[in-house]
């Protein structure tokens, strides 16, 4: 049994959210530079140049990459041999969010009641926390400040088993086509295939954490990712929807066994400002 202090979790979460909001990951920058070389449309290339320039300004001058500093999504992977001391785990995470958004001049975008009153909670809490218990005595924390524009384009389809691979590919391509210019393309497309409704949606979100463009370790899933990317990049939407070749930087899919009657497919879009950071305590 290894002890981890709640206060250390708060500090880690706070620091990760600040970093994520000011600095794009190297993998995202590399994918954007590659997209800049491959984009055929002049206005598409200009958009990507502006996105790269924005990333420089954000990190050099300490201005958040985007004014939408996101919903605070947090993935926790505590080892089963970890014991949290000195406080409640989820309270520690939310305190980290509170500090990051206040100290980092990040926009607080969460409303407490979603359907009528919509009053801002004032500190960007509560975080949306996903916990997955794993072997070992460490705690992995991943933060994903998720912007609303792309999140609003998420889709779940409970397809028929007979729809098969072709049906799921079409479902994902249509979701991106319908989202059009709204989710701030070029996007990263998270796909969850199988499980139950909520399992598919959760995999689609989790898939966004993968290094941009790294294929699935499963050969058939990797092939589906390539097929979807090829089709999406023929839609013509292009960077910010001004017309062009690069509508998506990558497709990341995860799969899980499902019921004999089911073929759930979920899509979660990540805007080009793909901000996430992780650490291991």
């Amino acid at each position: 049994m290894r002890e981890i202090k709640a206060g250390d979790i708060t500090r880690a979460v706070s620091s990760l959210f600040k970093q994520a909001n000011y600095e794009l990951g190297k993998d995202v920058l590399t994918a954007l530079k590659r997209a800049r070389r491959e984009e055929e449309s002049p206005s598409g290339r200009e958009v990507i140049d502006t996105i790269l320039k924005n990333a420089d300004i954000a990190s050099n001058e300490g201005i958040p990459l985007c004014q939408d500093c996101g919903t605070a999504v947090v993935f926790l992977e505590p080892g089963q041999d970890v014991h949290i001391t000195g406080g409640d785990l989820y309270k520690a995470v939310n305190e980290g969010v509170r500090r990051a958004y206040a100290e980092g001049y990040l926009r607080r975008s969460i409303v407490s009641q979603p359907f009528s009153e919509r009053a801002n909670t004032g500190d960007n809490t509560p975080a949306v926390i996903h916990t997955d218990i794993v072997p070992g005595d460490k705690l992995k924390i991943t933060v994903l400040p998720k912007g609303g524009g792309a999140e609003n384009m998420a889709k779940l389809g409970m397809l028929l088993p007979s729809d098969g691979r072709q049906g799921l590919v079409e479902f994902v391509v249509n979701a991106v086509d319908e989202a059009w210019s709204k989710p701030c393309p070029p996007v990263i497309i998270g796909v969850g295939i199988g499980g139950t409704a909520e399992k598919a949606v959760s995999m689609a979100k989790h898939a966004l954490l993968r290094r941009v463009g790294e294929p699935s370790p499963d050969a058939e899933i990797a092939d589906i990712e390539r097929e979807i990317l090829g089709k999406v990049n023929n839609l013509g939407i292009g960077p910010m929807g001004y017309g062009g070749r690069i509508t998506a930087l990558a497709v990341h899919a995860e799969s899980f066994p499902t019921h004999i009657t089911s073929l759930p497919v979920a899509v979660n879009l990540q805007c080009h400002s793909a901000r996430h950071r992780e650490t291991i305590l």
């Binding site: 449309s41 391509v173 089709k231 023929n234 839609l235 013509g236 017309g243």
Partner: peptide, 14 residues
């Protein structure tokens, strides 16, 4: 948005 998409759209898009 309409003109840009039409200009760069290719047939094989699912």
């Amino acid at each position: 948005y309409v003109e840009g998409k039409a200009k760069y759209r290719r047939k094989d898009n699912g």
